[in-house]
Structure formats: structure tokens, C-alpha cells
């Protein structure tokens, strides 16, 4: 029996969200008195794999087949299913990314496992019972869910686990799953990555977000400058992306993406309940709004009532003056 963690690579490194999964996986393994193995697929540097030891991973199974450099669900599922068998894994951990959720669901069907996505905390394990806490009702509540199948598949909500760095080094072994052409039937025709010099929004620890109060796209340099001074990603409210001031992939909220950074700074956003649904699990929320009655202040930890065009330049200046 062991715990298996699927880790995703990005530009040869392991994604931050996957380091969280690795930490989670080793902590579950400790509770169960076993070890945690990682499985990595596609282009990842060997040093990045051995470094997973820092998160408590003892062994990494690696499939470097170059056909897997892009995500192909069926092929990935086959490799991971093989790793589950080889390791007799009873717990399988993913990050709650688009990739993680897709393979998690397919593996749950194929291997007859129980699946919980959007998981926010370590499981409560008591004899035969295995209960995880997951976010439901778009951040308005949590549910405790008992996973009753033999194989428990867990997708961790981003930014809900502090990455540990105290372990050693992991050994790397190769794995391969006799993939056939049929497994690659769904290869994407084209993959277009956003041009970004900054931080990817779903992975970001700090997010600076602008709303309709920013008045127009020509003022977004304020949001961008503050973000770059803080090493943050940028986001926006729905009307802002609806008006094409900003691209759709930056829209957070009920109908956009959900973020849970350590710090969310909202500038000129009123704090409608649909917006809050996408950001309310951020650890610290800062609200800058000229209206003292803006509902967002009720959900905030820090607030400034003032004109964004006067306040944000002051923040940029103070942020640039921080020693890193």
C-alpha cells in the first residue's frame, strides 16, 4: 500500500500546485504509516524530480515519452493507472487543475475509486473511515465527505496546503505504459499559451484585481505595475472582461475562475456576491474603493476608502521600496 501523487510540469519544473499535492500526499502517507510516490509525465528536469524529496516524496516514477509533452487525457490516464497498480496505491493525489480534475474523474471510473475534488484539508482517518473536507457552494461552505471505495482519489484546491521543504531527495525510476496510437486519438491540433511576463493567475500567491471603478483599459497600467511590484498575477471582475477591457481568462467569480491566493487586492470592485464566490477563500483580502458602503469591505481584512487613481500609485511606490 502507498500514496501516489501525480505532479504536473511546466517549463521543465514542477508546478507550485503540484508541490502542494506532493506535500499533502506525504502527510497522508505519514498518517497511514506508508510512503509517498510521485508520478510525473512529459518534460520535467531530473533535478526537479529528485527535489520532490523536499516535500517528502521518496520515489518518483517518470514517463518521459515525448508524445506526452502535451496533455492527452487517455494516455495520461493509462500511465497513472499503471503506476497505481505497480505501487498498490490506496490514495491518489492530484492538484485541482483542469488536467487533475479530468484525469481524476476518468481514473475514478476506470479504477472504481471514490473521488473528491476541491479538497481543502488533510483527511480525518479513523479505522476504516476516510473523510476529507471540500469546498462547496462556491466558497460559501465546506462539506465533509467520506470516501468509501478502496481507492481514494483526491484533488487539492490550490493554495490550501503550505509546501514543506524539509525532506531529502527522491529517487527516480522510469515507468511506461505501452501506449498505442489509439491513446493519442485526442491530441490537440494546436496549443496556444498566453503571453505573460508575469505570474499565472490560477497558480498565483498574490492577485491584484481591477473592476469597473478603474474606468477603462487605458488605466490598467496601475493594476499591472502594482502586480509586478508585488510579484502578483492580475485579475478582473466580469463586466471588465465583458467589455473587453481585459481577456476572459482573467475574470474571477462565480462564472469565471476561482482563486484562493494568500493575498487578494481588489481595486474599484464593488464586491457583488458573484464576484466574492470566486475569491472568498483568499487568506487576506484588501479592498480599495471610493465608496465606504461598498459591500466588499464586509469581506475584507484591510480596506482603504479612497480614489484608486490616488491610492494605487502610493501602493506601487511603497511596494517597490520593499526589500525583497
Amino acid at each position: 500500500m502507498s500514496v501516489l501523487v501525480f505532479v504536473e510540469g511546466l517549463n521543465g519544473e514542477i508546478k507550485k500546485s503540484s508541490l502542494e499535492s506532493a506535500t499533502y500526499g506525504s502527510q497522508v502517507a505519514q498518517k497511514l504509516g506508508t510512503t509517498a510516490t510521485a508520478v510525473a509525465i512529459g518534460e520535467v528536469h531530473e533535478e526537479a524530480l529528485t527535489r520532490l524529496g523536499e516535500q517528502g516524496i521518496s520515489k518518483v516514477l517518470y514517463d518521459g515519452d515525448s508524445r506526452l509533452n502535451q496533455f492527452v487525457a487517455d494516455a495520461y490516464v493509462k500511465v497513472i493507472a499503471k503506476a497505481v497498480g505497480q505501487e498498490s496505491a490506496k490514495v491518489l493525489v492530484f492538484s485541482n487543475s483542469n488536467i487533475g480534475a479530468a484525469i481524476g474523474a476518468k481514473l475514478a471510473v476506470r479504477l472504481n475509486g471514490s473521488l473528491a475534488t476541491n479538497v481543502t484539508a488533510l483527511p480525518k482517518i479513523d479505522g476504516g473511515s476516510f473523510v476529507v473536507t471540500r469546498g462547496v457552494f462556491s466558497g460559501k461552505a465546506f462539506a465533509d465527505v467520506a470516501l468509501t471505495a478502496d481507492l481514494k482519489i483526491i484533488a487539492i484546491k490550490k493554495n490550501s496546503i503550505d509546501i514543506s521543504t524539509s525532506g531529502g531527495t527522491a529517487t527516480v525510476q522510469s515507468i511506461s505504459a505501452d501506449l498505442t496510437d489509439a491513446d493519442f486519438a485526442e491530441v490537440p491540433k494546436e496549443t496556444v499559451m498566453q503571453e505573460t511576463d508575469g505570474v499565472l493567475l490560477p497558480e498565483a500567491a498574490i492577485v491584484v484585481s481591477g473592476g469597473r471603478g478603474m474606468k477603462g483599459p487605458e488605466n490598467w497600467h496601475l493594476i499591472e505595475d502594482l502586480a509586478s511590484a508585488l510579484g502578483a498575477a492580475t485579475a478582473c471582475s466580469k463586466p471588465v472582461s465583458d467589455m473587453d477591457w481585459r481577456p476572459h481568462h482573467e475574470h474571477v467569480g462565480q462564472t469565471g475562475i476561482t482563486v484562493s491566493p494568500n493575498l487578494y487586492i481588489a481595486v474599484g470592485i464593488s464586491g457583488a456576491i458573484q464576484h466574492l464566490a470566486g475569491v472568498n477563500s483568499s487568506k487576506v483580502i484588501v479592498v480599495i474603493n471610493k465608496d465606504p458602503e461598498a459591500p466588499f469591505f464586509k469581506a475584507a481584512d484591510y480596506g482603504i476608502v479612497g480614489d484608486a487613481f490616488e491610492v494605487v500609485p502610493k501602493l506601487i511606490e511603497a511596494a517597490r521600496a520593499l526589500d525583497k
Binding site: A108, G139, K140, A146, T148, D301
Partner: peptide, 18 residues
């Protein structure tokens, strides 16, 4: 295969510092 045992709500924020 997933049994919803209990629901809970997040802790209230302690208040905003202006």
C-alpha cells in the same frame, strides 16, 4: 462512492482594518 457527512460554513472574518 462519496458520502456527504456534514456541512459547515467558513469562519467569519474578524473585521476590516481601515
Amino acid at each position: 462512492k462519496a458520502d456527504y457527512v456534514t456541512y459547515s460554513k467558513p469562519e467569519k472574518k474578524s473585521g476590516v482594518k481601515m
